[in-house]
Computed example of a mutant assay.
Amino acid sequence: MKDFKGKTAVITGAGNGFGAEFAKECAAREMKLVLADIDLADLQKTKELVAGMGAEVVAVVTDVSIYEEVEKLAKTAVDTFGSVDLLFNNAGVVVPGPIWEIPAKDFDWIMSVNVNGIFYGLRAFIPIMLKQDTPCHIVNTASVAGLLSTPGMVAYHTSKHASVSLSETTYLSLQAQNSKIKMSVFCPGFVQTDLHHSDRHRPERFAITPEEPYFQSASYKAGLERARHVIETGIPIDSIGMSVFTAIEDEKFYILTHPQYHPIIGKRVKTILEGENPSINF
Rank of each mutant, 00 (worst) to 15 (best):
E101P: 05
E68K: 15
T257G: 09
K72A: 15
T233S: 15
E56L: 03
I237E: 08
D85A: 07
S179Y: 11
S112W: 07
S239T: 13
L256A: 04
K5N: 06
E30N: 10
V144K: 02
S173N: 15
I110P: 02
V230E: 13
I272K: 11
A36K: 08
Y214L: 08
D39L: 04
F282W: 10
I237L: 15
R123L: 05
N116D: 14
I38V: 15
H161C: 01
L172I: 07
V57W: 08
A41R: 13
K32Y: 03
L73A: 02
V95N: 14
A9R: 08
V50N: 00
N277L: 14
L195E: 07
V139L: 09
E211R: 10
I128M: 08
I235K: 12
K270R: 12
D63E: 05
A176I: 00
V164K: 06
M53Y: 11
I248Q: 10
V269L: 14
I280W: 05
Y156P: 02
M242V: 01
K24T: 07
R200M: 07
L87N: 01
A59S: 14
F18P: 01
H196N: 15
V58L: 11
D199I: 02
G6H: 10
V94D: 08
A28M: 09
V95Q: 12
S159L: 08
K252N: 15
K252W: 06
D194M: 04
S179E: 06
K221A: 13
P236V: 09
E71W: 01
A145M: 07
D133H: 12
V50M: 03
F81K: 04
Q44V: 00
G13P: 06
E56F: 02
I235N: 08
F88R: 03
T271Q: 11
F245V: 00
V269C: 10
V94Y: 05
S173Y: 13
Q44A: 09
D194R: 15
E274V: 02
A227F: 13
V139Q: 03
I11K: 11
S243Y: 02
A145Y: 01
A222I: 00
L130S: 04
L174M: 13
G121H: 01
E274R: 11
P98W: 07
A28W: 06
P236W: 14
P151E: 00
F186P: 06
L122V: 03
I240V: 10
Q260M: 07
Y214E: 06
T12N: 11
K72L: 09
V10I: 12
L174I: 11
S143P: 05
S83N: 14
I272Y: 10
V34Y: 06
V230W: 05
T8S: 09
T62Q: 00
S243C: 01
G117N: 09
V185M: 10
P213Q: 05
M242D: 10
G17R: 08
L256H: 07
T233A: 12
S167E: 00
K252T: 14
